[in-house]
Design a protein around this nucleic acid. Structure first.
Length: 545
DNA sequence: GCCGTTTTCGGCCCGACTGTTTTCAGTCG
């Protein structure tokens, strides 16, 4: 009998089940069977109570876990693995699992690469591509080989940075070790960066014995913790927040006044330390405006703060609605009613329903409008009848003009042909902007932070044309996209292009992602009047006309 | 493999798009 301490964690059990799932895929087994293991793994991962402590009958009551997997979970709890997995591991090399992550390589392809070319690792695959052996496989060709080559490059180039949800999960794990009010998040996470290289935390807790527990919780993830005391908290937080460039400029400003900036405080010419309990006190002492964390990127903000001329930034409370959402009418998990309720809860004036044109026929769209009108009678938040219409590979749109003309809001987005060259892809978007019914270009670069680089779009041309055609550019606020990037937001606004923050919410919880988009808008130095959805409903409708 | 039930086995989300071949594999949302 294993003691409570040594009990196999849910994470470990989920990991074995997920391994089983992937090995089954590569082995060419029935995909539904592998899917069952995948679902069981997700289920175990999500459960709060330790699954290793449950009996077989209790396990079977968990949805997605049947008699077979229940028995295997018991086996994992006792031995750390299970027979069927071990048998499969003896047949399918585990190094192949990583290759499934490569774009262009699915289970079928991987099966052939392994059996026909003996490929086991990323290096093997790269060699096979270079020597043009892949294109000779049955059903393969030069394009397929190029696609795999691209996938390999992408996976090699993928920077080792965390998404905000990943960093947030790490922060939450560490935060559980502190008492209330004892810590703050600093670093690029606090500055609102789209991805985070290292999570930084400042704490006033006593360091005794904490370091080991923090290291254990972090599990090797990049994390730095600065211990300080309440009286020195201001400079400690300031220095831990960065950025390096901002701190350099701030240090120069301090030096001009006779002080050296350090995490402990400001040191004067006589070596005396002045300490500060808050960042505001540091800024005030230096005779500056307090610089919001999102601006601390060394883009001229220190100079402006010294002149008390920082820009007026948009706040979350300025937001009057959401311009991008999906429902069960396409690939969302929420009903129209759910969206209206979420809008009421958030005190929004409006939310645009923008289901995919590819999933909603013009006839269904007319029905959706009727349903929306019905629902609008019962809510303060008005649902707008919009669409996220595909910009097809040839630049045409997913709906005809007569359909677009009836909509309250039209987002046009690229969802296919990501590998097109820059000129072709850019021209698709320019063409879409020329359509008088298109209001917003959705997720302008198409990047997925943990999975896919941007497509080859010339944003200079897009921004120039957006200004000409008075088309807005989206700030997609999904933490996996965060698209447009802040430097382009800043450039777009300088050209007079409106920015439209939308969450792309597929379920009600995701409307809260608006805070990401507003953080990004702030990083792009946006004032409320540059953000489309800071307009009232009547203002928005007026902008469209 | 799980589920639901038509309690014994068929369905598991899916339609558009792309590339490479004429029937499918992979990607996309």
């Amino acid at each position: 009998m294993v003691s409570e301490e040594e009990q196999v964690t849910n994470e470990a059990i989920a990991d074995r089940l997920a391994s089983m799932s992937r090995l089954l895929v590569i082995a060419g087994d029935d995909r539904h069977r592998s899917g069952a293991y995948e679902r069981a793994a997700r289920q175990v991962e999500r459960l709060a109570l330790p699954v290793a402590g449950l009996g077989e009958e209790e396990l079977i009551r968990i949805p997605g876990i049947g008699e077979r997997i229940a028995g295997e979970i018991r086996e994992i709890a006792q031995t750390g693995s299970f027979q069927e997995l071990d048998d499969l591991r003896a047949v399918v090399p585990e190094s192949l699992i990583a290759l499934l992550e490569i774009s262009g390589v699915g289970p079928r392809t991987l099966h052939l690469l392994w059996k026909r070319l003996g490929i086991l690792t990323l290096d093997d695959l790269e060699r096979a591509v270079k020597s043009r052996r892949v294109r000779k496989l049955p059903g393969f060709g030069a394009k397929k080989e190029e696609m795999i080559a691209r996938g390999i490059r992408q996976s090699r180039d993928r920077p080792d940075r965390m998404t905000r949800p990943q960093a947030g999960a790490l922060v939450a794990r560490v935060a559980a070790l502190f008492l209330d009010g004892e810590h703050a998040v600093a670093g690029s996470y606090r500055r609102g960066a789209p991805t985070i290289g290292r999570v930084a935390i400042v704490t006033t807790a006593a360091p005794d014995g904490l370091a080991d527990r923090i290291a254990a919780v972090a599990g090797g993830a990049p994390l730095s913790v600065r211990f300080t005391e309440p009286a020195r908290y201001g400079t400690a937080l300031l220095c831990a927040t960065g950025s390096a460039g901002f701190l350099e400029r701030l240090g120069e400003a301090a030096l001009a006044r006779g002080y050296r900036l350090s995490p402990d405080g400001l040191v004067d010419a006589d070596g005396r330390l002045h300490t500060f309990a808050s960042e505001e006190e540091v800024f005030a002492f230096l005779g500056m405006e307090a610089v919001p964390p999102e601006l601390r990127e060394d883009r001229g903000e220190v100079e402006l703060a010294l002149r008390h001329a920082l820009p007026d930034l948009i706040d979350l409370c300025d937001v009057r609605g959401d311009l991008h959402s999906h429902t069960v009418w396409s690939d969302g998990r929420q009903s129209l009613e759910d969206v209206a309720e979420a809008g009421d809860e958030r005190g929004y004036e409006y939310i645009a329903i923008t289901d995919h044109s590819s999933k909603v026929s013009p006839e269904a769209l007319a029905k959706q409008r009727a349903a929306i009108e019905q629902i609008n009678r019962g809510h303060d938040c008005e649902l707008l009848c919009g669409s996220e219409v595909d910009i097809r590979s040839d630049g045409s749109l997913g709906y005809e003009n007569r359909v677009l003309a009836d909509l309250d809001l039209v987002i046009a987005s690229v969802h296919s042909g990501f590998a097109q060259d820059q000129d072709v892809l850019t021209r698709r978007i320019l063409t879409a902007m020329e359509n008088e019914h298109v209001d917003i270009i959705g997720h302008p670069t198409g990047r997925l932070l943990d999975r896919r680089p941007p497509y080859a779009v010339d944003l200079e041309r897009v921004m120039a044309h957006a200004a000409e055609t008075e088309t807005a550019l989206e700030i997609n606020s999904s933490p996996h996209r965060l698209d447009l990037e802040d430097i382009y937001i800043q450039q777009a606004k300088k050209r007079g292009v409106k920015l439209a923050a939308g969450t792309d919410a597929h379920r009600t919880g995701e409307f809260a992602n608006m805070r990401n988009g507003i953080m990004l808008a702030r990083r792009g130095w946006c004032a409320p009047d540059e953000i489309l959805n800071a307009l009232s409903l009547s203002g928005l409708l007026e902008w469209r006309s």
